[in-house]
Write a protein that binds this DNA or RNA. Structure first.
Lengths: 121, 121, 121, 121
DNA sequence: GTGGTCTAGACCACG
DNA sequence: GTGGTCTAGACCACT
C-alpha cells in the first residue's frame, strides 16, 4: 500500500506525501481517520523518523492532514476541493506536454490515438 | 531564442541542452551548422562557462552535436532518428500522466477532450 | 458550553482552562459553585483524565478555582481582580499587534476604523 | 537586523522566517536580491544549518523567496499581493481579539482609546 | 561554493 | 505513547 522506490530520484518524503494524497483522493483514507504515527511508519519503512515528519509536514501544508500534538495525525476532510485542484493540475500538465509536442510536429490526432490505444485499467 | 529561467528547478545546463535539441529538431539549426563557442554563449547568457560546457557535453552524449578541436562545435545530422526518439519520449510522458490521472478517476475521454479543445498554434 | 477543537494547535488543557476562566469572568459560574469532577468531565468530553487534571491545576494556579480534598472543585471569588488582570492582558495583546501592524505601514487610524466597522454582538 | 530570542517560545526557524518576511514587506529586501547562504547565516547566528534551511523552506512556501540550486536564495517580487494578504491577516487578528474582549465586557470605545494613547513610532 | 535530502540522536510539550 | 524542534554530520547535484 505504501512502498518506497529508493532508485527513484524523487525524494522519499515526496513519494510518501504523494502516495498518501493519492490514496486520500481515491477515498481509501476517510475524513478524521488516523494515520500511522511518525515512529511507527518510520519503523515499517525502515526510514528515519525525520523523513516521515517531513512527509507529514508537506501534507499538512497541502491541507490534506492535520496533526494534534500528543494524539497523532489525521486526515482532514475537504476531499472534493482537493480533487478539483488535482484535476486542474493534470489538465495543465497534459496541455503543456501536448504544446511541446506540437512544437516538434506531433499532431493532436497522434497524441489522442496514443491515449485511445492505451489499456484501460 | 535561447533564454534561461533561473527560477525553474530544472538545471541550467539541462535547460540549455533541451532548448538546443528542440531547435535542432524543429530545423532551426541545420546539419553541420556551427554553434556559438562556450565562452561566447557564457558571456551572452551571463553564465559560468562550466555550465555551458556541461550542456554541450550533454548534447554530445545525445549525438546532437559534435565538436572539432580548435574549430568549434557543430550540429550533427541524424535528425530523423533523433526525432523518433523524442516522439517515443513524449508518448511515454503522455501515457504516464494519463495513467496517474486514471488513478484519480479521470477518464481517457476527458483527457482527450482537453486536448481537442486546445487552440492549435 | 464546553467544547474542544482538536484541530486547534492550542493544547486541550489550555482550551478547557481558558474557556472556564472566560465563563467565570462572564458570571456564568458563580462564587463557590462546584465544577464537574475530573472523571465526569473526562467522560463527557471523551478525554484523558490527566488532561482535565492539568486544566484544573492551571486554573488553580490562576486562582480561579480551589479544590477541597474529598469534596470537589469550586469557583473562587476574586472575580474583580481576575477581570482587571484579564483586561491588562488584552490591552497588551492589542498594543503588540498594532505595533507589528505599524511596522508594515498600517496606520492606527485604519486599525481603529476596522474595529468601529465591526458589528457589535 | 536579524537576531534571535532564544527565550521566546516561538521556534527559531519561525522567528527568522517572520523577520525576513517583515523586512521584505517593508522594502528592506528588493526583488531578486540575494539572501545570505544557509551556511553563512548559520555561522552568523550560531545556529545549525538545518534550522536555517527550514526557515528558508517556510519562506519558499509563503512565496516570499525562491531558491536556485548551486546559486543561492533570492527574494521573489510579488510584494504588493503579499502585503495585502498580511494586512488581511492583521485585520482578522484585531477583530478576533476585540471580539473576545467584548465577551468580557470591554467596550470597543475602550479598546480604541488604548490604541490612540499609544505612542506612534 | 550553493541548496536539498537524509540519517542519528536528543529534548520538549502534550495526552 | 504522540508530534515538533533542534543539532551534528553526511552525501548529492549543480555552479
Amino acid at each position: 500500500m505504501l512502498y518506497i522506490d529508493f532508485r527513484n530520484s524523487k525524494p522519499i518524503y515526496e513519494q510518501i506525501a504523494d502516495r498518501i494524497e493519492e490514496m486520500t483522493i481515491q477515498g481509501i483514507y476517510k475524513t478524521d481517520e488516523q494515520l500511522p504515527s511518525i515512529r511507527q511508519l518510520a519503523m515499517e519503512l525502515s526510514i528515519n523518523p525525520n523523513t516521515i515528519q517531513k512527509a507529514y509536514s508537506e501534507l499538512e501544508n497541502r491541507n490534506i492532514i492535520y496533526s494534534v500534538k500528543g494524539r497523532g495525525i489525521f486526515i482532514s476532510g475537504n476531499h472534493e476541493e482537493l480533487k478539483n485542484k488535482k484535476i486542474l493540475e493534470f489538465k495543465n500538465q497534459v496541455l503543456s506536454i501536448t504544446k511541446s509536442a506540437q512544437n516538434l510536429g506531433i499532431t493532436k490526432k497522434q497524441i489522442i490515438s496514443w491515449i485511445e490505444e492505451e489499456k484501460e485499467d
